[in-house]
Write a protein that binds this DNA or RNA. Structure first.
Lengths: 368, 368
DNA sequence: GTGAAAGCGCTAACAC
DNA sequence: GTGTTAGCGCTTTCAC
């Protein structure tokens, strides 16, 4: 094994405690003693065994962040933000991905590295409410994403219905009436996309447009290929929308590709809106109009909530936090292009809608 | 604190050892004993404390994977592959990002979570050779990426010079002669892109074309915005290339965007080749020709090397492993589009070049 | 097949 | 200010 405190103490001719004091930067150590110990540390190449420290302290300073798929830029960008936010609190992040499988989601929130991770931030897809209620593990858990649960855990998610409505409203304002929805799910007991789909339905109805279910296309996954296929299927079916609202940017980008291949003009023939504002949406030949959740805020708040629970805040009442979002209008719906500038500062955006944590900005406002 | 082995033992009226045997699925336990203990475990909701186990065993089963930026899809995709490869060996991955800062790279390979991570896979950018030689930490380290070091650590990287040459050769074969390179670095002591830049230079020279340094554009970073800016700067400078070879796909995609904005046709006016084969390169309005490193192989081999070292294989001689790569020809150089199919199986690709670990495939072959 | 006891390396009381 | 000591929860000889 490696060099331990005892070895250093022996070498320096002092007690273990003194070495420990030096290692932990205890204030009350005489400079000469500190120097002596430090020399022994350097000579022996001592590195503290954090595992032992963790065992002793009962906590590790490691939190886990589990997402469906790291290959989805939205989650990759979010993971980066979580890592940064956690670092601010001196926490290290263990990133895992579940492939959106319920089994792996269960595993991660039940018995994943028990006592090694202090807490978990999970973005579930197929986890059921009962799974959460049956959770044995006592470490704090914060939930992210579209699914809403009735369980004693903090949940962070933008208002998906309102956000979806703002996207559809934008398309209606452009005079579009046959607005397709890409990315509902096939043959699942639960419909992960249901909130955004509901927003689509509600906003159409509110505008006096009858939602046409033939314009709703289910996909197998959430990737670019699924979007491309869905768009192709819709067109092959002979259904011709004048606008598309996609569950996420990847699906929208895939649809965009199909439209280009088929020689359809965007936005003239068909306008397209996505959801997520991943960076690549700003750089395509046709930049993508999209709903931009405030990822930094989501990450920061998720970490803040987790850290608060870790610090002992009781779960009297689980909190639901709604970070802000923006509708960023770009070329795919006729907006001008904004290649520069961070997503949150895009010029052609409707104001942020946020509750609780975001410093009160303007309430949601209609797109021009 | 939580429930410990002792508590379970007490409850079941057996010794600690017996409970431990049950928990670890020891073969020689009578069924009735196992059942009795299991009942106590369930009743008390016991979860093993992995931290204690780690301390006792001297290893944790956690490895770290540190990349410059998780927001770069190449690294995100690679991270996903590493997580999967590690899972095969029952290792959990702690993903971290260094922002490409030497300081953070040092931190991660020196004193990062000592004794908590069994080993580290690091993709450095600014780490110097001396930093590696001065490394105190004794846990295994595997290096990834373009930088080549003279240090006692395994290194996994495709043959960047040859890969770059194949990209440039492809452009030369198309009759292009004024081939720009986007993505060299400004004012750094080291030139991270130097291998690909060297490939560019060598292949041009070999073809009897004088490399023109006015066609080399430095960028501040490796993102889409950097590529867009670099392309714009080149055109504004009045320099008109007939092809562009970019350091990576993001820079190429940014360049593509600028070209579209300026009304230049791709590939007719300017052909574009990238490097990385990130998924989005296949889905743009103009799909991108790119050098596709075999990410799965890179991840697998990195994990394999690390696991081998962890299993006690001595570092008699550090290995240099060269996974395969392909040149995937798509629309940005006049190829047909390949939206479907995994990157490694793309039809219009030059054969794989790989050494050592990849099951001997065909040797490097010229592009047609 | 099961039990008793030692110790992994560290921290935190508590003495001195 | 510094030293002594008792565990944190687990695995692992070694008896029985």
């Amino acid at each position: 094994m490696g060099v331990s405190l005892k070895d250093v103490a022996q070498r320096a001719g002092v007690s273990i405690k003194t070495v420990s004091n030096v290692v932990n930067n205890y204030p009350h150590v005489t400079p000469q003693m500190r120097a002596k110990v430090q020399r022994a540390i350097d000579e022996l190449g001592y590195r503290p065994n954090l595992t032992a420290r963790h065992l002793r302290k009962g906590r590790t300073g490691i939190i886990a962040f589990a997402v469906p798929e790291l290959g989805n830029p939205y989650f990759a960008e979010l993971a980066g933000a979580v890592i940064d936010a956690a670092a601010q609190h001196d926490y290290t992040v263990l990133v895992d991905h579940t492939a959106g499988l319920r089994e792996r989601e269960l595993l991660v929130c039940q018995e994943f590295r028990s006592h090694v991770i202090d807490g978990l931030i999970l973005s579930p897809i197929h986890l059921e409410n009962g799974d959460l209620l049956a959770r044995q593990e006592t470490s704090p858990l914060v939930l992210l994403g579209e699914r809403e649960y009735d369980a004693p855990y903090d949940q962070i998610a933008i208002d998906n219905v309102a956000a979806a409505r703002s996207a559809v409203r934008h398309l209606l304002d452009l005079g579009r009436r046959r607005i397709a929805f890409l990315g509902s799910r096939t043959g699942r007991e639960r419909q992960p996309a249901h909130l955004r789909l509901r927003g689509w339905r509600e906003e159409l109805t509110a505008a006096g447009v009858e939602p046409d279910d033939r314009l709703v296309v289910a996909t197998d996954g959430y990737g670019r290929g699924d979007g491309a296929d869905a768009m192709a299927a819709l067109l092959d079916r002979g259904v011709r929308p004048d606008a598309v609202f996609a569950y996420n940017d990847l699906i929208a980008l895939g649809a965009l590709r199909t439209l280009t291949e088929r020689g359809l003009r965007v936005p003239e023939d068909i306008a397209v809106v996505g959801f997520d504002d991943i960076e690549e949406s700003r750089y395509g030949a046709i930049s993508l109009t999209t709903v931009a959740p405030d990822k930094r805020a989501i990450a920061r708040q998720a970490v803040d909530r987790l850290v608060a629970r870790l610090a002992g805040e009781p779960v009297t009442e689980p909190r639901r936090i709604r970070p802000g979002y923006q509708l960023v209008v770009r070329e795919s719906t006729g907006g001008s292009h904004t290649v520069a500038g961070p997503p949150a500062a895009a010029t052609e955006a409707t104001p942020v809608a946020a509750t609780e944590a975001a410093p009160a900005t303007a309430p949601p406002v209609d797109a021009p």
